[in-house]
Amino acid sequence: MTPRSMALTRQLLNRPLALSSDHAHILGSMLRNNGDDYMLFGPPSDLEQFIAQKMTTRVDNVAIIKISGILLPGGSGCWWWPGATFYDDIGTAFDVALQDESIKAIVLHIDSPGGTVAGCFDAAEQIYQARSQKPIVAIVDEMACSAGYALASAAETITLPRTGEVGSIGVVSMHVDITEALEQDGIKVTTFQFGARKTDGYPTTPLSEEAIKAQQADTDRLGALFVSTVARNRGLKPEAITEMQAAVYRGQLGVEAGLADAVMSRTDAFTDLLKNL
C-alpha cells in the first residue's frame, strides 16, 4: 500500500455521506489538494489477529467495541486503519459479543464524525434489533456525529462528556467536477454512453439541471430515512429531528435535545454501567 493509494478515498466520492459539516469541509479541502488515503486516514498496519478482536476490549464481562474515525462500507480485510472503521467489521464484532454468553453487556465506544450512508443504516438496525438480548450502551468519546450518531442512537442509552458532540443528523452529497482542470491542462475527454443519465455524477461531466434535481431528491430521501431512524431509536418525533437542521449539540445541550441521556466521562459511564448491570 503506497502513500498515493486512493482505495478508501474513492469510497467518499460522488456518493451520499452522513458526515459532519466540519469534516465534509476538511474532506473537500484535502481532495482539492490531491488528498489520498494516507493523508485522510493515516498509514495502515497489517494485523495478524482477527479484526473483530482488535476492535473489542473485554472488561468484567462487558464487551467494548471501539468505533472511531470515518465510517466506511464493507470490511477492512487484513488492514487496520487508525483513521477509519468499517461497518462490516462493526457488525462482526457486535455479533461475536452478542453470541458470547459470558458477555453481559455491550458498549459502543464512539469517537466518529460519521462517514458513508452505504452500510450505515444496516449496521444501526443490527444494533437496534439486539436491544432485547443484552444491555447496549453508547459511550461517546468525544464525538458521535452524523453516521456516528446513527449508530449511537441504536443503543439503549447514550452518554457523552461535557465537551462531547452529538447530532449532525443530515446527509450531504458532493460532486467532483474536473472539467475545468482538464481544459487547463489541454486534455479533452470524449464520452460515449448508452442512456441519457448514464454519466450523471461523472467527474468529467458537468451536472445538468435534471441531474442536480435528481441528486437533491435522492439526498432528501436518505435524509428522511436518517430522521425516521433516529426518531424511532430515541423515541422522538420526526418533526423535532428535522427542526434541528443537522445541528451539532455539545454536552448537556445534547441531553436537552433528547439526543443523549446523561453527561458523563467515559470512565464514569462505564463504572455506572457495571454498577447497574
Rank of each mutant, 00 (worst) to 15 (best):
L72K: 07
V107R: 04
Y202A: 14
P135V: 03
L19F: 04
L253W: 08
L182K: 09
E256C: 03
G186W: 03
D95K: 11
L182P: 01
E125T: 13
D261H: 15
A52Q: 08
Q99L: 08
L108P: 04
I70N: 00
D177S: 09
R10M: 11
G186H: 03
P161I: 00
F86E: 02
G77R: 03
V140N: 00
M39I: 11
T92M: 07
K104T: 01
M39F: 12
T179K: 02
Q133W: 02
G201C: 09
K134M: 00
S21F: 09
A224Y: 07
R232E: 12
R10L: 10
K275S: 13
G164D: 05
V230T: 12
Y149M: 00
E183R: 15
C145N: 00
A240D: 14
F270W: 10
S228M: 11
S168N: 10
G42W: 05
P3H: 10
I90W: 04
G254M: 08
G170D: 12
D100W: 05
P16W: 00
S68N: 13
P43C: 06
A150Q: 14
V263M: 03
G186T: 08
D218A: 10
V59N: 11
D122L: 07
E243H: 12
S20Y: 06
G35R: 11
L31A: 01
Q184W: 10
R221D: 12
V255S: 07
E210N: 12
L225I: 08
K237S: 12
S132H: 11
F192N: 11
I169G: 05
V59I: 13
S102G: 07
L225Q: 13
V137N: 03
V166H: 03
T219V: 15
E243W: 06
A97G: 10
L182M: 12
T85E: 05
A240I: 09
I70P: 10
G170C: 06
L13Q: 14
M264S: 02
D46I: 11
I103P: 01
H25W: 07
T159Y: 04
M1Q: 11
L27D: 02
A211E: 08
P44G: 04
I136Q: 03
G42L: 07
T205R: 10
L207G: 08
Q215Y: 06
C145Y: 02
A154L: 06
D95H: 12
V189Y: 04
D218K: 13
T229G: 07
G258D: 04
V176A: 11
T116I: 05
M244L: 14
P3F: 11
G42H: 01
I65G: 03
A224K: 14
D122W: 04
I67M: 03
M55P: 03
A105K: 01
D36W: 04
I158C: 00
